[in-house]
């Protein structure tokens, strides 16, 4: 695609994107010169999960949802991207197939390069390679954070809710706090909250070290009920 078909505003925007950051102007011009443009209507897709990963895209306008489908057809939204975002970058890392579907949430336009073309530039420019690496490292970081939330915070809430529910039904006030007056094992709690014994033990130990609870064999005392309610209900942080 000829560079002159891109408006000056778009070219200005593209020189700011992380992929092209700190590159010499002539290299940016060459890269943009061979870019191709593709418009996709709302609700259609740039590519589908499982398609051969042959192109790398930069969104110019619109909004794109990246999601995966589970084998039983459930859709898992991984991220939603806006203008100037890179997507399909897995193609650069020898990904054979796209691991996600890139479906448009609005009418969208993107620039794209066949991976072989972009690889040609990367081979000549360590800075371009470094930019691509930084973008992917950013994605890894983001998904590590998401993973931690899924793996810990949500189970914490489920566990806090289960304990509060049991306590409100059977709790008994004792000098140290509220005794969960029921012989309940960590395995019971794990099954109630859809997690593992190991996770329940780890979270209970953490709460114990924070002074929220005291726990022993088949025994839990809630020392700071409000703290547990905070976790269970995700109460807004208090303004003091």
């Amino acid at each position: 695609m000829a560079l002159q078909k891109l408006s000056p505003t778009v070219i200005e925007g593209l020189t700011q994107i992380p992929l092209l950051k700190d590159l010499p102007a002539d290299l940016i011009a060459s890269i943009l010169n061979v870019a191709q443009r593709r418009a996709v209507e709302e609700g259609s897709a740039f590519f589908f999960q499982g398609d051969p990963a042959e192109k790398v895209y930069v969104l110019l306008e619109g909004r794109v949802k990246l999601f995966q489908l589970t084998p039983d057809g459930q859709q898992v939204l991984l991220r939603v991207i806006g203008p100037w975002s890179l997507f399909g970058a897995i193609a650069l890392a020898h990904g054979e197939f796209y691991p996600v579907t890139a479906q448009t949430a609005q009418n969208s336009t993107a620039l794209y390069w066949p991976v072989s073309v972009l690889m040609g530039f990367i081979n000549k420019s360590p800075q371009l390679a470094m930019n691509a690496l930084q973008i992917m490292a950013g994605h890894v970081q983001e998904f590590q954070d998401r993973f931690r939330e899924l793996a810990t915070e949500r189970v914490e809430r489920r566990l806090a809710r289960a304990i509060l529910r049991l306590t409100s039904q059977t709790g008994k006030k004792v000098p140290e706090g509220i005794l969960l007056n029921l012989p309940i094992t960590r395995q019971d709690l794990a099954e109630m909250t859809g997690t593992t014994l190991y996770t329940v033990s780890r979270i209970l130990s953490q709460w114990e070290s924070q002074g929220l609870i005291q726990s022993g064999r088949e025994k839990i005392i809630i020392c700071f009920p409000h703290g547990l309610v905070n976790i269970a209900e995700d109460l807004p942080a208090r303004q003091t």
Partner: peptide
Amino acid sequence: FHMACVGCSMSAFETLEDAANIYA
């Protein structure tokens, strides 16, 4: 007072003094 006590499952176990202290 922006307190979440009403309807809270722990409200049977917390005194008014506890609640005031929790919310400063």
